[in-house]
């Protein structure tokens, strides 16, 4: 059992990272978006390995599904030609950015390696809809309700932006 989980973890992890690299490296934005879909699916697999079934399902439905369809719609509407996209160039900014990213990665990895291994088993109902719902309406009530107001604000804002010229 442990062995299977480890194998699955490495498969999903490699796929997720490869997808992420693909997003950055792809020349064609549509290819980048498809790499992102792959990365999202791999992440959903990782969530499953962590017993977070609901989050895994939401990841597939919301991100890999709805959000990516919107992304692709916009990309195809824009219909960018290679000339408009321009050619990638290496500037000082990119080098500094890469160095910073490498630094943060090294920091995260070194911290994680130094962490003591605490393999506490999750509660039996961990990750179920009921458990997540109880958390959302219990401990996280305020943040949850504030998020609902945030969505309302986003809708009203979208109406204002989309409305005709004032």
């Amino acid at each position: 059992m442990q062995g299977t989980v480890a194998v699955l973890f490495w498969i999903f992890a490699v796929l997720a990272v490869a997808g992420g690299v693909g997003v950055v490296a792809a020349k064609n934005p549509v290819h980048g978006a498809m790499s992102l879909v792959g990365s999202f699916f791999a992440l959903a697999g990782l969530y499953l390995l962590l017993d977070a079934q609901l989050i895994a399902a939401l990841q597939v439905i919301v991100y890999a599904g709805a959000v990516m369809v919107l992304f692709l719609f916009v990309l195809m509407l824009l219909n960018l030609t290679p000339a408009e996209l321009g050619s990638p160039r290496f500037g000082v900014g990119k080098v500094v950015g890469a160095l910073c990213a490498a630094g943060v990665t090294a920091l995260v990895v070194s911290t994680l390696v130094a962490l003591p291994v605490r393999a506490t088993p999750a509660a039996t109902d961990f990750g179920t809809v009921a458990a997540v719902g109880r958390l959302l309406y219990g401990k996280f009530t305020l943040a949850f309700e504030a998020t609902s107001v945030l969505l309302l604000a986003a809708i009203v804002g979208a109406v204002v932006v989309a409305k005709g010229k004032i």
């Binding site: 943040a143 504030a146 945030l150 604000a153 009203v156 804002g157 979208a158 204002v160 932006v161 004032i166």
Partner: peptide
């Protein structure tokens, strides 16, 4: 007093101002 709520509140503060910035198109 929690980074989670701080983030949600920052978004709730900012999203309406993004839309308001484009309220008048002239």
């Amino acid at each position: 007093t929690d980074l989670l709520l701080v983030f949600v509140a920052i978004e709730l503060m900012s999203v309406p101002t993004y839309a308001l910035a484009t309220y008048l198109r002239t």
